[in-house]
Write a protein that binds this DNA or RNA. Structure first.
Lengths: 355, 355
DNA sequence: CTTTTTTTGATAGACGTCAATCATATCAGT
DNA sequence: ACTGATATGATTGACGTCTATCAAAAAAAG
């Protein structure tokens, strides 16, 4: 029950070699005969030896160095990410984790790739970035990987790239969920959903849209889709287009916004005449304006990817990768679904990752 | 930027005392003049010293010893909790955390209290238990606390007890959320919700019920409540009562089950004639039968408290408390809302707490 | 001023690992 | 059997903390 964990000395003894040799094996320092390597490996397996990471880090005064590259701009979601990161910064320092946040222009894969290339000079343990689909970016990631840096995509993945891990929600699933909730909110009756995205080229938006339309098609029960609006994630643009769409098509019973720029959407809803029943509205990311709209009863549901948890998970995974514990399974994040009643308190209350 | 964290030697030097004295202060060994204590405390504050927990644990070969007391019985939810705990057990051992699971009879506060009393003999760092409202339980908790054991309630709290922390969802909020979703699913039309609980005496069930009825009353828009059914969390009992209720009141348009025993509820739904539109169904906890019912389209929504996350969080908090970092803020857990489309994979894929 | 008590300082060993050094063994090839 | 390469063993100091011991200094008591 209270069996002791074996140390490297135990392993060496069990393998019939000296501590030095065992050490040479687990830290691949080379210059060890094939036979000895095998014996040490066997001893490790038999005893179930696991390196004591705390002791190892202590001996080296090691500090984990991670970089988070976040798109800059007025996007509330990413601003919140930055805030969460800065809040955990000090707590992490205690645990010998140094997190640096770098900003790059949003939607600019070239700039992002360039940033990564610059990083590959420094000595660091891991990088987390918001993915995009771009060959230059793939190259930059490969380059980092070659230098032994753990690379992890956050929020959005980089398709077919050599990143170790994607930490974020499945956007197709999120879209399908939105579709189901919309159907549910129609209470068995028909209707027409107005889909709003930032851009069809944005992978996450496209996936959400796809998910929603699939669900509507499969089990919609009379809920159809109006033509898709591309709002470019800009509040004013979204506002104009949605306003027009509602005028053009009075049959619209619901709005699904898969992207950002929803402050504009909220403005349209505020201006609706109070006598007509407003459309059912589902949108993504709990940010100040969506929270307010939810509280005011202007919208019905918010699907949120819980950035706090994403950050926390990303940090856990980065650390595990830096510790060479590469058992990195995919990490599923379950998006939260918010209504008026279950809004969390605003305080970003992540304590400090994990001890 | 890459400032080094100060060590206790730094503190001692800065305070103008020896390492031994500084050590006596932070580990309250006594025999230190008031003046020196003050000077050390000041130095700690000025330098921002935080003791290196990893080094401290290493020096003592310390193993964290935690006990989870889980109600036994056929309840799928608690079975799943046990499973999650056994899955993380080995991974935790690596990080020098030893978790023991103890089973006690469900709904038996006396047995639970007795179990805690027995525990208070052993040397352990923390206990997690599923709370109930009982004076004997409160006493047992106080006793543990006196011995310096961290005590944390999981899933359900113990009202007004000396536990350090409650890790679980807010059941009133969960009920309010259910209410909102039910209203939404009525699509603006009226209806009548059939509420099912295990027992009105069960605090969590009562809170959920209260939350739902509040929301219906405040903004229900014609959605009312049928008399509450007490199913005692037993499948057969629930089945019989619900079947009868649906016969008695054909106006019922929805069912909200706040407790367990939902396999019986699902059986009723299966037997409904295919021509009539079935009621909207919302229930709690994603367990095998609720998952299947969701997939089969028999029910609409499941509110789940994500036991994996609860366990993980509980462990994090226990460890932090054991490390004397008592900055224990309340820990909000956002329940997940599942529909057919966003069911997670079944694999319980928690890796290993946190490094 | 001495004696006793309280408070300090100095130091050492342990924890498990990493990194380094130096001496010795083993094995080729000749 | 000798050289030279390669492999191994033995050992040491660091990392930051805890625990312990012993001597020395300062304060209080007589």
């Amino acid at each position: 029950m209270k069996r002791q964990l074996p140390t490297l000395s135990d392993v060496a003894r069990h393998a019939g070699v000296s501590y030095a040799t065992a050490d040479r094996v687990i830290n691949d320092r080379g210059g060890v005969a094939e036979k000895s390597v095998r014996r040490v490996r066997e001893a490790i397996a038999e005893l179930g030896y696991v390196r004591n990471v705390a002791a190892a880090n202590l001996s080296q005064k090691r500090t984990y160095r991670f970089v988070f590259v976040i798109p800059e701009g007025p996007n509330s979601f990413f601003q919140y990410l930055r805030q969460v990161l800065s809040e955990v910064h000090d707590a992490l320092l205690i645990e010998r984790v140094d997190v640096v946040v770098k900003n790059v222009r949003a939607f600019d894969a070239g700039a992002l790739a360039q940033c990564l290339v610059e990083l590959s000079g420094e000595t660091l343990d891991g990088v987390a970035l918001v993915g995009m689909d771009d060959p230059k970016l793939r190259d930059a990631i490969d380059r980092l990987k070659e230098q032994g840096v753990a690379v992890l995509t956050l929020v959005a993945d980089v398709p077919e790239a050599g990143r170790d891990l994607y930490v974020g929600i499945d956007n197709v699933v999120a879209g399908r969920t939105a579709g189901r909730l919309l159907i549910l909110a129609h209470g068995g009756r028909g209707g027409r959903v107005l889909p709003v995205v930032g851009s069809r080229a944005a992978l996450d938006h496209a996936e959400r849209l796809q998910g929603m339309s699939e669900t509507l098609a499969e089990t919609g029960g009379g809920v159809s889709m109006a033509p898709v609006i591309e709002g470019r994630d800009l509040h004013d643009h979204v506002e104009r287009l949605v306003r027009q769409a509602l005028l053009d098509d009075p049959e619209i019973t619901a709005i699904y916004s898969a992207g950002a720029g929803n402050a504009g959407l909220v403005r349209v809803l505020e201006d609706l005449p109070p006598d007509v029943s407003r459309p059912v509205v589902v949108l993504h990311e709990l940010v100040p304006h969506s929270r307010r709209a939810l509280q005011d009863g202007l919208i019905d549901l918010v699907i949120d990817q819980r950035p706090d948890d994403e950050i926390k998970l990303a940090l856990e995974c980065l650390r595990r990768m830096a510790d060479r514990m590469d058992q990195t399974q995919p990490v599923p994040i379950v998006p939260a679904i918010y209504v008026r009643e279950n809004l969390p308190d605003t305080i970003a209350d992540d304590q400090n990752g994990a001890p």
